[in-house]
Amino acid sequence: MKVGGSYTLPLLRQRAHELLQDPAILARCMPGCEDLKKIGPDEYEMQMKVVVSAVQGLFAGKVRITDQKPPESFRLIVEGSGKVGFMKGDGLLTLVPATVTTGVSILGSEGTEVRYEGDVQVGGTLAGVGQRLLDSTAKMIIRKFFEKLAEAGAETEQAAIVP
């Protein structure tokens, strides 16, 4: 399944790029992330509890970052599995300076558009019965992630500026 889209963060590109690689921030922003540990350079281990309506799945997996071109782009590779199924995702994230139109931060209207494009594979029971809902659920999780990231970003900016 192809996924693609973009989200504009009220953060400068350098800052957006840093946040997207900060394990503490990622752990906080990934919906259901219960644990994220750095296990090597650009490699993390994670536990996720995905709760979508009545469905609950515990996933254990790995996140890898490759093709680093800070602050412009990087490739994100995610793999996870649990009792309800497995998922594999591979996506290219491109950061482009942009103008923020909503949720303008104290920094003004300079922001960053994060474009993502990739492929997600889902298997097991989850995919067998949930085909109809995979696309909308994947998009929902990605939207939630960026919303939380924008929030976390705004907070850290505030903390950096207001002593």
């Binding site: 009545a54 469905v55 609950q56 309800v84 019965v129």
Partner: peptide
Amino acid sequence: AKVLAGGMSLIPLMKLRLAAP
């Protein structure tokens, strides 16, 4: 706890163990 109404969505999910309240 999960509440059960008609069970048309919840019961199949529980049988598949996608939901395990």
